[in-house]
Design a binder for these strands. Structure first.
Length: 537
RNA sequence: GCGCCCGUAGCUCAGUGGAUAGAGCGCUGCCCUCCGGAGGCAGAAGUCGCAGGUUCGAAUCCUGCCGGGCGCGCCA
């Protein structure tokens, strides 16, 4: 059963009242906003301004009638309505509405903010070449993809996290050759990192090994390390999908036989990707007989299609930009639903070290790894920082700065607020808190301080915020939300005494419940980001 | 040349049609008889790249231009 929340109910009431006024269907575009200033009320709507063109009346006149309808409809929930500016309708809610909202949040418990999406979603992310350790760029993908997955899970979807392993082809072979070179004490041509030497030492007989075999073994070892690193970063992959396995099972050849739009020209095999908007058709098998890099991807997507997901999200780096259209084309040519497959392009993480750009190429060997970053600033700060920006903007991260400022990172502020609430609840005592949670809040005569209203409104936004962040593939919104919630808790803490509230005429039960709910929302927000919510710091 | 992304405070960035554009860091000045000072309050700081257009209303949508990034192979 879907749990309704007070804000969406309010939004619904506004929409219906507006529709009734127009005598037409619901007004979907009507907004219910938190106004920029307290004297504009608790909530405001632009419905009257939207109705004005079709109704042929002045917005303020419509707002007048809308206000009357709403006041009647909402009864004791609304204290008064005001018309302002070009036709905004500002709603001033009563303490009773706040008490009822708190009670409903408490009753909803864990269901507050959760949805019943029910879709099977696959998120492919990271998928970094297994020829070296996870870098900071991949760490951003990891933070993004995992947080997105967590949000979809909260929305009620079943999510599978998958890592596509490029363990075949030229790069793999060169990796094998590099391992052998190190084993022989030579300088490799390709992968020059120290870790290659380490691998060479761990693989028996590497000095005389076959490069393909060495690559296979080296990739196995690298993947173990990658998985460990991801676990440490609180990212758990449900599946590592091997590109090599697609060759070995014959899936690549089968895919080329079955996909639509294949033709031969100039001795090569092509896929008509222009049919789906690509700039030019793409080669599947070169005239030399070799399969192109693109070919196994066809097979991989065929495999995904066969698994029957409702939706696939593929998180790629900006270097795959020119690859997007052909992947969409391949998906369509395989018979996939174009609306079910989605590619998200992440922008870069530019690393600076003391103002100088750090090198990230695995082949160059100078790598800033995810492990090194975590050693430096910790998992919490790293996940927060890498998730805190929109995926389509690049991040300039000066390691020296991140290191020196780690104590000022906003993540600590949010965690501090959580720990502080925990401390207040400890001070109140378990029994006291349990008693507060058991009271009928609706009977309270608590008069809400503006800071308390502001905080409660923020908590009530949680469901909408999670939905929005998930639907727009924008987990970074959660960092903004969590920080705002923490700030508003701090204001509430400053203005409203919790333990001993009666001394200032307040209701301790109500304030304890606010604390419990605020703590829960902060913890869940942090969890969506893969950040811990400590009881004390 | 073509395509995509970005351009918002000194710096890093939020803000995909609403009211006086925000946060963190940095800067200036205050606040610990008070449930956690890893805190709070106040202040300085902006032609939202530029120019048009759509709209009652534009940082947001459209067009053009300028600046930056990335991508455009029978490479992987």
């Amino acid at each position: 059963m879907l749990v309704s929340d007070p804000v969406s109910d309010l939004r619904g009431a506004v929409g219906e009242a507006a529709a009734g006024l127009r005598g037409d269907g619901p007004l979907d575009a009507a907004r219910l906003d938190r106004p920029p200033r307290p004297d504009f009320g608790d909530y405001s709507t632009n419905a009257a301004m939207l109705l004005a063109p079709t109704m042929g009346e002045a917005p303020r006149a419509i707002a007048e009638r809308l206000g009357e309808t709403l006041a009647e409809r909402l009864g004791a929930a609304v204290d008064r309505v005001e018309i302002a500016g070009p036709g905004f309708l500002n709603l001033f809610m009563t303490d009773a509405w706040y008490l009822d909202s708190l009670a409903r949040m408490r009753e909803a418990g864990e269901r507050f903010g959760s949805g019943e999406g029910g879709k099977r979603v696959q998120v492919e992310f990271v998928s970094a070449n297994p020829t070296g350790p996870i870098t900071v760029a991949s760490a951003r993908h990891a933070a993004y993809g995992d947080s997105l997955a967590r949000m979809l899970e909260l929305a009620g979807d079943t999510v599978e996290r998958e890592y596509y392993v490029n363990d075949a082809g030229t790069q793999a072979r060169k990796f094998g050759e590099s391992i052998r070179a190190r084993a022989r004490g030579e300088e490799p041509e390709e992968y020059k990192g120290d870790y290659v030497t380490g691998l060479a030492e761990r693989i028996e007989g590497a000095a005389d090994g076959d490069p393909d075999e060495l690559a296979k073994r080296g990739i196995e070892l690298m993947l173990e390390e990658i998985e460990r690193t991801l676990q440490r970063f609180r990212v758990h992959m449900d599946r590592f999908f091997s590109e090599r396995s697609l060759y070995e099972s014959g899936a690549v050849e089968r895919a080329l036989d079955t996909i639509e739009g294949v033709y031969e020209s100039e001795g090569a095999l092509w896929l008509r990707t222009t049919a789906a908007g690509d700039d030019k058709d793409r080669v599947l098998r070169r005239s030399t007989g070799e399969l192109a890099y693109f070919a196994p991807d066809i097979a991989y997507h065929a495999d995904k299609l066969g698994r029957g997901y409702d939706r696939l999200i593929n998180v790629l780096g900006p270097d795959h930009h020119g690859y997007v259209k052909r992947l969409y084309a391949a998906w369509a040519a395989l018979g996939g639903d174009p609306g079910a497959y989605e590619i998200v392009l992440m922008q870069l993480v530019n690393l600076f070290e003391g103002g100088k750009r750090a090198q990230m190429s695995k082949r160059e060997g100078a790598i800033v790894t995810l492990d090194a970053l975590v050693d430096d600033i910790g998992v919490d700060a790293a996940r927060w920082y890498l998730a805190s920006r929109s995926h389509d903007t690049s991040i300039d991260l000066d390691l020296e700065l991140a290191r020196s400022q780690s104590q000022d990172n906003p993540v600590y502020y949010v965690q501090y607020a959580h720990a502080r609430i925990a401390s207040i609840l400890r001070k109140a005592g378990e029994e006291r808190v349990a008693a507060a949670l058991a009271t009928d809040l609706r009977q309270s005569d608590e008069r809400f301080h503006p800071s308390a209203r502001s905080l409660v409104k923020r908590l009530l936004e949680f469901p909408a915020e999670v939905t929005e962040a998930a639907e727009r593939r924008a987990p970074h919104r959660m960092t903004t939300y969590a920080h705002e919630a923490a700030q508003e808790f701090s204001a509430f803490y400053r203005d409203c005494r919790v333990v001993g509230a009666a001394e200032e005429g307040g209701d301790e039960d109500v304030r304890l419940v606010i604390c419990v709910l605020a703590k829960d929302v902060l913890a869940r927000s942090l969890d969506l980001l893969g950040v811990e919510a400590p009881e004390s710091m």
